[in-house]
Amino acid sequence: MFRILKKSLKTGLVTGQYPQAQPLVTPIPAAHEKAAPFKSSLTIREVDTGSCNACEMEMNALTNPVYDVERFGVHIAASPRHADALVVTGPVAVNMEHPLKEVYKQTPHPKLVIALGDCAINCGIFKGSYAVTGPVERHIPVDVRIPGCPPRPVEILEALASIRSFRTPSDE
């Protein structure tokens, strides 16, 4: 017990100890409006359609004490039926096309789709392969694009924050 307390006290606060990123380059005009109903919270469901798993690792990193994405009201849901936004990573592999469309159908309206990483945006290095059916937007409408291979957690954080920054006082 004392060992645990001592460890926690010794560690102190680590949240926010990361290098800052430049503001996101891609402007996201229409996404703000779509995100407006969610106000200051956003529940995310992550769907991997064929990534190399680096994007997953960075999504997982968002929940660690250093980035602690929950402090910004971003919550990660276990089911698409609980989600406001789908985060899709990877090019859409031929075997994942159907599950992706199914997940999109299961997500309640209104919903946002966020394409995370270069592969989700333009298939990246896997472009053209027989087993890749195209970028995410070929199958479902994409609202936000976060480029990078993989994007750093702080960049994902910035992007998620910027979707919801378009909040007028009347909305709140």
Binding site: D48, T49, G50, S51, G90, P91, A93, V94, N95, M96, P99, I125, F126, S129, Y130, A131, V132
Partner: peptide
């Protein structure tokens, strides 16, 4: 094999020096 992306076939389209990425 849900995420099968045809990597081994993609390798065959690359040169020895170009396949590192």
């Amino acid at each position: 094999f849900w995420k099968h992306r045809g990597i081994e076939k993609l390798f065959e389209q690359c040169t020895l020096s170009g396949a590192l990425p």
